[in-house]
């Protein structure tokens, strides 16, 4: 597997942040924070509106390391970096299309969960319609040709036997004697 993650660095960063948290807790004054007393976690980000935009775009982008996760869900370091990129560019005033363009020029259409409509993806987008039309056409032809087939009527003998059966006569088994 060519893909590596700096696990060691992550562990170190984690232990460092725990250390900082402990130090910060020890340094805070004993007065309880409002969010804490109401039992809610404090928002991790300064700007919830920006963060909502980042999250909404991040859900549409594929993480290239763990390919079945979006960069919003993935914990791979690359996903974290890309989320930071998205956040930075939004903060710098870029719109969603510009950020998508930035990522597509670097990672290709593969980063998009919704592939764009272009010559190579024509079959992808129109394939289902094609199948539907072909299947529908085949069904229509079948039904028409069946409608043209002459209806088979019962012969007099058959009709008499059917009526006898309906009237409750015992069925004679024609194929075997038992």
């Amino acid at each position: 597997m060519p893909v590596e993650r700096p696990t060691f660095q992550r562990l170190r960063a984690l232990s460092l942040s725990i250390l900082f948290a402990v130090v910060a807790l020890a340094a805070t004054d004993p007065q309880p924070v409002e969010a804490e007393s109401s039992g809610q976690a404090q928002p991790l980000v300064a700007d919830p509106v920006l963060e909502a935009r980042v999250q909404s775009l991040a859900h549409k982008l594929r993480c290239l390391v763990c390919q079945n996760e979006s960069i919003a869900e993935s914990r791979a370091p690359l996903a974290i970096d890309l989320r930071n990129q998205v956040r930075e560019q939004f903060a710098a005033g870029k719109n969603e299309d510009e950020v998508i363009e930035f990522l597509v020029t670097r990672y290709g259409d593969f980063v998009l969960y919704l592939p764009p409509f272009k010559p190579v993806t024509v079959l992808l987008w129109l394939g289902p319609v094609l199948f539907l039309v072909a299947g529908g056409g085949w069904l229509l032809l079948r039904l028409r040709s069946r409608a043209r087939e002459p209806k088979q009527h019962l012969s007099d003998a058959e009709r008499a036997r059917a009526q006898a059966l309906l009237a409750g006569a015992p069925a004679e088994n024609e194929e075997s004697g038992s």
Binding site: M1, P2, V3, E4, L64, L78, Q85, R106, Y107, G108
Partner: peptide, 9 residues
């Protein structure tokens, strides 16, 4: 790395 589209070393 991001400029070069690096996703796995």
């Amino acid at each position: 790395g991001i400029d070069y589209g690096v996703y796995g070393t």
